[in-house]
Design a protein around this nucleic acid. Structure first.
Length: 267
DNA sequence: AGGGAAACCCGAACGC
DNA sequence: TGCGTTCGGGTTTCCC
């Protein structure tokens, strides 16, 4: 479930623990965690590398090493934890990187969906991503023009990381509700005014998520509070905070989708 | 091109 | 109680 705000929260939290440290050992206990290269190469390359920076691109955590980018995608159940060397590893730790400061980074992932890449050039992994919704390239005009270019249902299009990067199921439902748009509405039907409302809604829900340190909605992730402020997501049967109509749950593009049937009309 | 479905996983939650 | 089934989350891949 880690989406953009959760990954941003993790990146900010672990950065001071990592920058300037050197990786002294690397242990994998699930080889499919590693998207590339082989385990042997991975260890040879990563050990001895100093951490230069920790940042985020879309939902990827980018641990910038002296000669490589260590990219981690948490997918649904992944988490990153920094522990001290006396702490025991936990059951679902898939990658453990011991650091020069007597701490270690654990990539813990119950469901084994997460992936790790070690690459010289991060564009090898990140180049297909659409714009960052919180950065300057993303504007109301860009959104309007690019929605109109396609003819797709709004929700699957917003979830498409090559269109716009970083929105997941929770924040998409919240943004569409805030913009009063139905998830099945077609992208080429949107007006300039609706596109602007959607632009504002996307940025607003993501910023609120970051401000609240993300959402902890399942038993895996920890720390955030945004789950206490959902307006529609996971609110089936509850009243819409805007109009009081009961929130409905439907399936769109195989994803659980929550709407207010009064605020979000399909015309 | 767009959309639906399946695959990848596991454990919680549910139904009986 | 215990057992079997369903579900969900992000992404890729395959098929119509």
């Amino acid at each position: 479930m880690p989406e953009l705000p959760e990954v941003e929260t993790i990146a900010r939290a672990i950065k001071p623990e990592l920058v300037g440290r050197t990786i002294v050992s690397a242990d994998l206990n699930w080889t499919r965690t590693l998207a590339t290269p082989s385990v042997r190469e991975f260890r040879e390359q990563v050990i001895g590398q100093k951490v230069v920076d920790v940042t985020r691109r879309a939902k990827y955590l980018d641990i910038v090493l002296k000669d490589y980018h260590l990219l981690i995608h948490l997918r649904m159940s992944g988490d990153i934890i920094i522990r001290t060397h006396t702490d025991a590893p936990e059951k679902h730790d898939r990658l453990i990187l011991k650091l020069s400061n007597k701490k270690y980074l654990a990539f813990n992932d119950t469901r084994k969906f997460g992936r790790v890449w070690l690459v010289k050039d991060s564009s090898a992994v990140l180049s297909k991503l659409g714009p960052e919704p919180l950065e300057r390239g993303f504007t109301p005009q860009w959104l309007y023009e690019n929605l109109r270019k396609r003819k797709r249902q709004l929700k699957p299009l917003l979830l498409d990381q090559s269109f716009l990067s970083g929105l997941g199921n929770i924040y998409t439902d919240e943004a569409l509700h805030m913009a009063k748009l139905h998830p099945l509405g077609l992208s080429n039907d949107i007006s300039a005014k609706q596109a602007e409302a959607l632009y504002e809604a996307i940025r607003s829900v993501l910023k609120e998520g970051i401000r609240r340190n993300g959402a902890s909605i399942d038993w895996v992730y920890r720390g955030g509070s945004y789950q206490n402020y959902f307006r529609v997501y996971d609110c089936e049967g509850k009243p819409c905070p805007v109009c009081g109509t009961e929130i409905q749950k439907l399936v769109v593009g195989q994803r659980g989708t929550h709407i207010c049937p009064a605020c979000q009309r399909l015309r």
